[in-house]
Each structure stands twice: as structure tokens, then as C-alpha cells.
């Protein structure tokens, strides 16, 4: 089982978490055009490598948190650390 490190609870089985997805900046719903909003909803960077993403620790602290994960080998590091 892959382990994911929660900033509150420490390393836990990945099955305790829900994958939220890539961390993206949300356009302002007041001013965004439908096209911009759909781009925000549907398009992803989907890189093979490091990516900043959001997870939810549903079986633990019940908090959302950011983490950086390498999508090729699932290595992780705390969000905000740049290589």
C-alpha cells in the first residue's frame, strides 16, 4: 500500500485519503467567461513528474492539504519545496 504523508497525522495508507486533484487557481466566477470557466473545470496540466495537488484526509484529520507528488514514481514532498 502506498503511504501518503498528511501534514497533521503523518504517513498513512493512501486509502485513507481522497484525491482532489491538481491545485489550480480558480477564476473569479463574477467575471470569468463560460469558456474560461470550462477551461478551469476540464483542462489539466497532467504532467509526468512533480505536481502540486490537493488531497483530503477523510479517515483522519478531515482536512484538505497540499502536497507535491511525482506522478511517475509517486514520490512525495511537502508543498512549496522546489527542487
Amino acid at each position: 500500500m502506498m503511504l501518503l504523508t498528511c501534514p497533521n497525522c503523518g504517513a498513512r495508507n493512501v486509502s485513507e485519503f481522497r484525491y482532489v486533484g491538481e491545485a489550480k487557481s480558480r477564476p473569479d466566477p463574477e467575471t470569468a467567461t463560460p469558456e474560461q470557466w470550462r477551461r478551469y473545470l476540464y483542462f489539466h496540466r497532467n504532467p509526468a513528474g512533480w505536481i502540486k495537488e490537493t488531497w483530503y484526509h477523510g479517515s483522519g484529520c478531515r482536512r484538505y492539504f497540499g502536497i507535491e507528488r511525482n506522478t511517475v514514481d509517486n514520490a512525495q514532498r511537502p508543498a512549496g519545496v522546489t527542487s
Binding site: T71, V72, N74
Partner: peptide, 13 residues
């Protein structure tokens, strides 16, 4: 699998 990845490793889960 429940999260996006390019890894093709199998899991016990």
C-alpha cells in the same frame, strides 16, 4: 486507480 499517476506498479490494495 483512485488517483492520477503515470506509474504502472501494481498494488496489494
Amino acid at each position: 486507480d483512485p488517483f492520477a499517476s503515470y506509474s504502472t506498479r501494481g498494488s496489494l490494495d
